[in-house]
Design a binder for these strands. Sequence first.
DNA 1: TTAAATACTTCACGACCTGAACTATCTCGC
DNA 2: GCGAGATAGTTCAGGTCGTGAAGTATTTAA
Lengths: 159, 159
Amino acid sequence: MSDTPDIWDLYTTEVQAMMGVFALQLQLEQRLTHTPTPGDLGKPECHLLIILAAPRRMGELAQLAMKTPSAVTAAAAMLEKQGLIRRVRDPRDGRAWLLELTEEGRARRCELIEAAFGIFYETSGLTQEEAKILAGLAKKIHNKAIQSGAVGPCEGDRT
Amino acid sequence: MSDTPDIWDLYTTEVQAMMGVFALQLQLEQRLTHTPTPGDLGKPECHLLIILAAPRRMGELAQLAMKTPSAVTAAAAMLEKQGLIRRVRDPRDGRAWLLELTEEGRARRCELIEAAFGIFYETSGLTQEEAKILAGLAKKIHNKAIQSGAVGPCEGDRT
DNA sequence: TTAAATACTTCACGACCTGAACTATCTCGC
DNA sequence: GCGAGATAGTTCAGGTCGTGAAGTATTTAA
């Protein structure tokens, strides 16, 4: 069963990192959406809900989630239909919508975050210490990714 | 533009980690498959090619990639059609196939790994030091994920 | 030698995302 | 003010990818 003698020696440091990241992402996404709590939220809805810690414009959310605006539109429609979020016009710009959690949405988000907490440690097997380290790196990565990748994918080629 | 004052304070450590992992995975996958090198390899083919450092049974590969066997079948068919891999029966078990790189496949894999190397640092913005740290965590994560997640997704509920 | 388990394959289906064309609103320059 | 151009979000058709169930070939065990 355990085919983990040290197949890792076959891979470079970077590939190891990539494989781990890949694995974690897959597991997290799957287990998070299949968790008992969320009635019927898909991956994109969960993702959006997690990001939506504070009211934000859809464009910003797209950027944070690293998806196109249309993907956010779809997820937002879903969440709104379930009464988890509310759309308000941005007072500063009538073209933009501000998404904000409803009371129920806030509750649902809390549950989701809590579930994520458990799932994170379960599937990663990391200690809190290590999680903190990972978070530090993650912050850096996310910032970099956003600024270089910009909104659209395969765009940022500024070198 | 830069909406990164410190929105991170809104998120828990674990959520930060998750967001970073998510971002990195998305970017890497996209840029890796859209890289000039690979003629026409999709995400699953690239993923498989990277994992395939040494000859392996398809079942093992499915486990490593955290996908179902049928996903591996499809990707393998693609790679074989392009002459990058060869299928040989496992001498120990006539039911199983061993996938191994052809000469051309080895070359292609090298290019891919090299591209991945660059892309990794570009999109993550990490130093080599940090990459090493990440790889360490990643190794742990991957092992845990495999053993708990087993082959199929949403299975491992052993608690 | 036959029954059960295992490795992989095939295929229909669904989830998700992108990209282009569209509507509504803002911002300028005149 | 008013029209041109830019920007925020929406809609929709199309494509990629993955799962899950049913099927084939081979091994293992009784």
